[in-house]
């Protein structure tokens, strides 16, 4: 009746979201009065398992096989299916990484369950755990419970403060996964990065960032003027870069750059969690959006509900006056 947290590594390095998921696992285990366990999957992961053992867990499973050296959905699913069948945890907690998005639903399906994905908070009452997840890109929240065990949940980036090591080292249990080469259908190649970024947004003091609210590429000068008068870097949310209106290297968010400038202007950006994780460390956040319920206002210090095409030029004018 344990809570089992699946930690993620690639090439011998942790995915940092692993320890945020571990923090969520601590909360769930505490509420259920269940022991907290963790697992790491791969090849040659002994060092990582020993490191994880220094966290506040009852036990860590090091699930090893040569065929797990490079991630494949077939390999990871089979290895974890074996572990879960053997250990019978009540709740399995994942970090909501791209890798978990790739195999988590496949694994939970093996147990006839849907994954409660992208959880941003947890409510506990009377030994019952309710998971909070966002709908409509953060515009609404929902309370979700699992019907039956095991429960599978994945924890969104930035929702929990990462767990800290502490206490006695937990025992490491080595588990040899049973895998055959024929089970692995996909052939992954070496991961790669595209051309080096020439824009380093993380060094900017002021960032003017633009989202879907700008409507058309032809409207970009509205925000370019603000960036210019402030001496700011121009950035954008994903859809703007997807459309090719600004280069990909100016994208802020989970699939782009993470920034923490002195001032971040979010203009016409609704504030989906994938964007928020990339900019919520900014010292001061100004949001301009026509939808008063846009989640960006949750992150903002100063908010303006209204038409960016009227407000941004007025701000440019004010700054010019202030500088004169």
């Amino acid at each position: 009746m344990s809570v089992l947290v699946i930690l993620e590594e690639r090439g011998g390095k942790w995915n940092r979201l692993s320890f945020e998921a571990l923090a969520a696992g601590e909360r769930i285990a505490g509420a259920l009065g269940a022991p907290l366990q963790a697992a790491v999957i791969g090849a040659g992961i002994e060092k990582l398992a020993n490191e994880a053992a220094t966290y506040k867990i009852a036990k860590i499973f090091a699930v090893e096989h040569d065929l797990l050296a490079r991630y494949t959905p077939d390999g990871h699913t089979a290895a974890l299916e074996q572990l879960i069948k053997a250990q019978q945890p009540k709740v399995v907690v994942f970090p909501h990484t791209y890798q978990v998005r790739d195999f988590g639903p496949k694994l939970s399906t093996r147990f006839g369950k849907a994954l409660i994905s992208d959880v941003v908070d947890i409510k506990t009452a009377g030994g019952q755990v309710t998971f909070i997840r966002q709908l409509f890109q953060g515009k609404l929240n929902s309370d979700v419970r699992a019907a039956g065990e095991p429960e599978f949940v994945s924890i969104q980036a930035g929702a929990f403060r990462a767990a800290e090591p502490g206490g006695e080292a937990a025992p490491v249990e080595k588990v040899a996964a049973e895998l055959e080469p024929s089970q692995i259908r996909t052939k992954p190649e070496e991961p790669f990065r595209e051309a080096q970024r020439s824009v380093d947004l993380s060094a900017a003091d002021i960032i003017v960032s633009v989202g879907r609210g700008i409507k058309e590429k032809e409207n970009l000068p509205v925000v370019e003027q603000l960036a210019s008068v402030l001496g700011a870097e121009l950035a954008a949310s994903r859809p703007i870069c997807d459309n090719g209106w600004l280069p990909m290297e100016r994208q802020v968010g989970s699939s782009g750059q993470t920034v923490s400038p002195k001032v971040y202007f979010a203009i016409g950006i609704s504030g989906a969690i994938q964007h928020l994780v990339g900019m919520k460390g900014s010292k001061t956040i100004v949001a301009i959006n026509k939808d008063e319920n846009a989640p960006i206002f949750e992150a903002a210090d100063y908010g303006v509900v209204g038409d960016l095409f009227e407000i941004v030029p007025a701000i440019v004018e004010e700054i010019r006056k202030a500088k004169a």
Partner: peptide, 15 residues
Amino acid sequence: STTVMDRVYLPQRSK
């Protein structure tokens, strides 16, 4: 259903 959505609501502002 293997998951139950109990409630849908506007997020509360904490900041």
